[in-house]
């Protein structure tokens, strides 16, 4: 328990170190989420339009979520 506390305190710099890492996480994950969101929305729109060339509109992409 004490170890966790000293780790979180970061030698007194915790209030600067943790927000920096948290902000990094927020921005990296936020960009990823908005990107994936737009991609899925576009995939839905494309598949909803009637498409005579099935190869042009891939139905499902499992690897879109790394």
């Amino acid at each position: 328990m004490e170890q966790v506390q000293t780790f979180l305190a970061m030698g007194g710099y915790g209030i600067f170190v943790w927000p920096a890492f948290a902000l990094t996480a927020v921005i990296l994950i936020g960009l990823l989420v908005t990107t994936l969101h737009r991609l899925h929305a576009l995939q839905n729109d494309l598949s909803r339009l009637h498409d005579p060339r099935p190869a042009a509109a891939p139905a499902h992409m499992p690897e879109a979520r790394p």
Binding site: M10, Y13, F21
Partner: peptide
């Protein structure tokens, strides 16, 4: 700089 130097590991790559 103590532990505050750890901010470098996200700041400099960014």
């Amino acid at each position: 700089q103590g532990d505050s130097v750890r901010i470098m590991y996200v700041h400099v790559p960014a």
